[in-house]
Amino acid sequence: MATANNGYYNIIGSMDGKPLTALAAVKFLGARASHVIAVGACAVHGGVSAAKPNPAGCVSVASVLQRKVIQLPGCPCHPDWFTGTLAHLLLYGDPELDRRNRPVMFYSQTIHDRCERRSFFDKGIFAKKLGDGACMFKLGCRGPITPIDCPIRKWNGHVNWPVGSSTPCIGCAQFGFPDQMEPFISYDVSKAEE
């Protein structure tokens, strides 16, 4: 939610012949909706929009609404996380949420817990560069601090996911992304062998 200059950094249409800001629309609709779901990192905690230096004064949806907001962090949010939450609301009512209002059916276990390369971490075998087939912890993988189901749900029609393509998790589904998840890649942690 862009808040600087009364929200005029983000105009989503017009109403009554005047520009309608996202800020005004969220405040208007958010106060009247039966449920509010924040979809994606920017809506949940500011995300890329609120990254330093944040000239548009972006904040989360929850911080401009005085009510419960179901949080679906991720950059992007997986279609399953959103449609699953929406379907649950329609069919069964409120899904079970964790202490940060994320549905536990998607956000309960860290990537590290179910990572296919977990046995490499447990045995202390670490990748030194992208493309090495071992645990990418020393390159800066954020899987251990990111609770989400990417290892089993996967992306692009359930085909693959970052670790399956030998690139570390960058913590896009964790609060604070991207600023607090940087650096996304570090090559200066392992001892140089030459």
């Binding site: 990418m136 912890f137 993988c141 251990p144 604070g176 940087e182 942690v189």
Partner: peptide, 13 residues
Amino acid sequence: TNNAAWGAATHFG
């Protein structure tokens, strides 16, 4: 050094 939450010796910035 080997704490999983400290990938590349960094943790939440």
